[in-house]
Amino acid sequence: MLQKLAILFAAFTVAICVEEKTGEIQGARLLISKQILNRYLVEGKDIEVRYSLHNIGKSPAVQVELKDNGFNSDAFEVVGGHLSTKFARIPPESNFTHVVVVRPNKYGYFNFSSAEVSYKVSDAPDAQTQVSYSSEPGEGGIVAFRDYDKKFSSHYWDWLAFALMTCPSLVIPLVLWYNSKSSYEKVSKPSKKN
């Protein structure tokens, strides 16, 4: 009797193991990368954040929730897209991107942390919920707008101011010369005619 029970128990555990193993292979598996698509991080200018979601599993990921708590509403303003989204279903072996554009209100170093994703690994009603995290872009320095402008602006106004400042030293001699030239011409012209 005891032997039979032991065999039954062994068979049961093996069955569970097999089920878990197949579940692991067949279930959905999301890989998420978070990237900052900027050359420069500038205060008050766009910072483009791209989340790439890859489902490398064999089942669709269901009730996917993507949430990024890394952008504090005090320091960042969301100008395009949403930091907290849901996807009803991500098909197996597919990938796509989600884009959010934020603008920082402050300058200084900022640590871009990872986004959080939770999803059900299959369509089954008793499917387990998996929580995973995206990659971390890491620390980046946000430059003050004044410093950025000094380096990269078109400087049209600066040159216009320079031109205005150099005007007196150029225009005054020109006017003096022109006056004397035209007065000489007035004197010389009638004498030529006569």
């Binding site: 698509l37 500038v42 766009d46 949403h82 009803a88």
Partner: peptide, 29 residues
Amino acid sequence: FTTQDATIVTHIGFISEFEVKCSSGDISS
């Protein structure tokens, strides 16, 4: 919404947000 300053970003982000209202019924995904 699209990013319009190509001097600081490497890619142009295209974002479309839309709201759907049905006269009857619900929307599937």
